[in-house]
Design a protein around this nucleic acid. Structure first.
Lengths: 154, 154
DNA sequence: GTGGATGCAAAGACTTTGCAGCTTC
DNA sequence: GAAGCTGCAAAGTCTTTGCATCCAC
């Protein structure tokens, strides 16, 4: 995925120059850390990782930087149910949705062209031009043992 | 929909007797108001309507009563993006999803068996038994005029 | 220099709960 | 009476912002 990282970096650079934004050490570190991060990081999680490199960084900076990343198309914000928002590096040209196991908390990703297509025509049928959607499935792992193994792995 | 209201009332009565819960005037009024309400009420909206009949009722009571309704299967909680949670009377045996116009804020409902079916098999393919899902579509009304007419109609 | 960026702390927007007093069964 | 409710106010969660200071351009 090295290519993707480069792609996202230049996407951000473009956005920043177009909007007269400045490059700072904080933003560099946050970007690097974010791109390296496991998918589905929270602000807190990212902050913690960033502070290992640059301890002075504050919550608000990470918060605002993620907002910048989202605006630049570099990050996707995901709000599953209750907890804090989660962020993952964007995948230009790809879209995926999520499936959560409510027992172990694992997050699976998938994409399905049939559903996407259906959504567009459903919207059209209601007189609406579809611009985006949010879909999350919830279920329970069929393999109980694997599920238990993942439980509480925060 | 008088039948549905009766059905939900007896559903709640059953849940309450099974759990040793007590019938109070507050709960009666909240239930009546809720069943009469437009779909997609917030706690605040419902509270306001309830207070027209019974002014002493407080926010916490409506909050706790809606939690009870959800547990009894009488209400569905919907969390669209940002704002407060919205509640609507449940429709036993039916499931529907929502489509929001991001311009005028109108909420359309739909159900689609093809998507539902797909979701089950996608989950199975990932080794998960599907228990529920959340899907919200976002778009913009094609009929701009109708859209403008609905804008700001809170 | 100047306008954007940062950190802190405080404020918001919602949700959830502790508790004393009141009601139902 | 005892177990549940209710209302109020307070505490939680997360998110968002005001502001003085700092730094990139």
């Amino acid at each position: 995925m090295q290519d993707r990282a480069e792609e996202l970096k230049s996407l951000l650079a473009k956005h920043m120059s177009e909007h007269n934004l400045k490059r700072t050490r904080q933003r560099d570190v946050i970007l690097e850390t974010f791109l390296r991060s496991d998918d589905h990081t929270t602000i807190d999680g990212l902050l913690e990782a960033v502070q290992e490199v640059y301890p002075a960084v504050g919550y608000a900076t990470v918060y605002r930087t993620l907002r910048l990343f989202v605006a630049a198309g570099v990050a996707k914000e995901r709000r599953f149910g209750d907890g804090p928002a989660m962020y993952e590096p964007a995948e230009p040209d790809h879209h995926h949705d999520h499936l959560l196991c409510t027992k172990c908390g694992r997050i699976f990703e998938f994409e399905d062209p049939i559903i996407e297509e259906r959504q567009v025509s459903i919207a059209k049928g209601l007189g609406v031009r579809l611009t985006s959607h949010r879909m999350t499935l919830f279920g329970e792992c069929i393999d109980k043992e694997a599920c238990a193994r993942h439980t509480r792995k925060r």
